[in-house]
Design a binder for these strands. Structure first.
Length: 439
RNA sequence: UCCUCAGUAGCUCAAUGGCAGAGCAUCCGGCUGUUAACCGGAGGGUUGUAGGUUCGAGUCCUACCUGAGGAGCCA
């Protein structure tokens, strides 16, 4: 091998495998400390952080001078020898021989996000840069793992991915507000759920799921709401409410276990106490709506029977369990038109909400669907929904209808819970909230 | 939509109705092991906008704008 051979580029996460070797690392300057004739640049490459050491006498004079003036987030490449260093964060350090700058951030316009504190408005305004911080990187890695685990779960269980359209002709549920768009002279709406379409694909494929963005134009302004969020929605032919609940708890248990297995370092970076996550094992507790109301009242809540659970009620209830709890059989009148009534108590819907522990609220909502044609038509009329718009949906009950059911799981709420963070806005790269459409 | 709170240097925040300040960031200098390094120095302001009260307003009043927290609704 020629003595002039250029050393290979390595990712920082693999630095430990190259101890004693000369390598090149490229990335962005995370921080730079100076101590006389020593420079300590910390490089960030998306896979980790690594500190390099530049001695004034072991690198060319011009290189040292240039490095001394480097500003935060300048992009660069460092050639050097990897050395085990117990004091370094990753356990390894780079003894620099040379340093090449790709782009020096000008001092007149320094990188706005400094290592100190910032307010949320400023950070949101600079979301495109905020993503580079260690905390955001850790959250996005966990989001990636959640999505990977969800798809792995369904794919390994015989489900077929069959995505629903994002542009739709009418409301899936009459209640929520929709974003309206102009569609070649007609009105169209951004989907708020792929469920109705998933029912059609389930009749074709048996077990299906769709996974994509959904939109709600509600003026909700809380830590649990985005106007654009990602939802995974399985739908299963022949499934009844018990099957839906069992599927939901198996999915959540798998996702939690997968994140615990693959994201230890990221959870640690977020200072997430993983003990509550370790508890998440099957089976999850199941209580009826009636029991939930009793428990909430006994715990000092003031909810009225017959209404939906509020955010505070959910927290009171979830605090009584060490893992997610499933609340089933809500009063039919507070739930969607397509939910199958309980045969023994027709005023109740065969539905289930899963509440995450630690006050993270509802992460799953699902039900057994009405499969009887006449009952479904009656419900559509009762809710004053346009029957003609649901013609294709009613067809599913005209041609070999069977009991079926499914649920929707909000990815951002699951990620927020697993990360132990306050607000869902940090769980998606570019959040859309009622008052923010930028960047 | 409703309720509450906040807007002062690039950022995070101080300033009894009486001279607009500090830390970080940036620039200059010092230091051969720094860990949000440290030490010394410099530059940096139409106090969100428009009115009003007052001898005097960052501070009090009114309206508006922007943002945050919460409620309702939801995943």
């Amino acid at each position: 091998m020629a003595s002039e051979a250029v050393p290979p580029f390595i990712e920082i996460r693999h630095a430990g495998e190259h101890a004693g070797q000369e390598v090149r690392v490229r990335g962005w300057l995370y921080n730079l400390r100076e101590s006389g004739k020593l420079l300590f640049p910390i490089l960030r490459d998306g896979t980790g952080l690594m500190q390099a050491v530049l001695f004034k006498k072991t690198v060319p004079e011009a290189v040292f001078e240039q490095a001394r003036h480097l500003t935060q987030e300048s992009s660069l490449e460092i050639r050097g020898v990897v050395r085990a260093e117990p004091r370094a964060p990753g356990g390894f350090e780079l003894d620099a021989r040379d340093l090449t700058v790709y782009d020096a951030v000008p001092a007149e316009h320094p990188y706005p996000i400094t290592p100190k504190e910032h307010g949320i408005e400023f950070l949101m305004e600079h979301r495109h840069l905020w993503l580079r911080s260690q905390r955001q990187v850790a959250i996005l890695r966990i989001r990636h793992q959640v999505i990977r685990a969800v798809r792995e779960f369904f794919d390994n269980d015989g489900f077929i991915l069959a995505d629903a359209p994002i542009l739709t002709p009418a409301a899936c549920e009459g209640t929520s507000t929709l974003f309206e768009v102009e569609y070649f002279g007609e009105k169209a709406y951004l989907t708020q759920s792929g469920q109705l379409y998933a029912e059609a694909t389930a009749m074709a494929l048996g077990k299906t799921y769709c996974f994509g963005p959904t939109f709600r134009a509600e003026k909700s302004k809380t830590r649990r709401h985005l106007t654009e969020f990602w939802m995974v929605e399985p739908e299963v032919a022949f499934a009844q409410l018990d099957d839906v609940m069992h599927l939901a708890e198996r999915l959540v248990a798998h996702v939690v276990a997968s994140v615990l297995e693959h994201c230890r370092a990221d959870l640690a970076a977020l200072e997430r106490n993983t003990a509550p996550l370790e508890n998440v094992a099957l089976p999850f507790p199941r209580i009826t709506y009636d029991e939930a109301v009793e428990r909430i009242r006994a715990a000092g809540g003031t909810m009225e029977y017959g209404t939906d659970l509020g955010g505070g009620d959910e927290t009171i209830l979830a605090q009584q369990f060490d893992r997610p709890v499933m609340v089933h059989r809500y009063p039919a009148k507070v739930k969607a038109f397509y939910m199958q009534p309980d045969a023994e108590r027709p005023d109740l819907a065969l539905c289930v909400d899963m509440l995450a522990p630690e006050g993270y609220g509802e992460i799953i909502g699902g039900s057994q669907r009405i499969h009887d044609l006449e009952l479904l038509r009656a419900r559509i009329r009762e809710q004053n929904l346009p029957e003609e718009a649901f013609g294709w949906y009613l067809d599913l009950r005209r041609f070999g209808t069977v009991p079926h059911g499914g649920f929707g799981m909000g990815i951002e709420r699951v990620v927020a819970w697993l990360c132990g963070i306050e607000h869902v806005r940090e769980t998606i790269p570019f959040p859309r909230t009622i008052y923010r459409l930028f960047p």
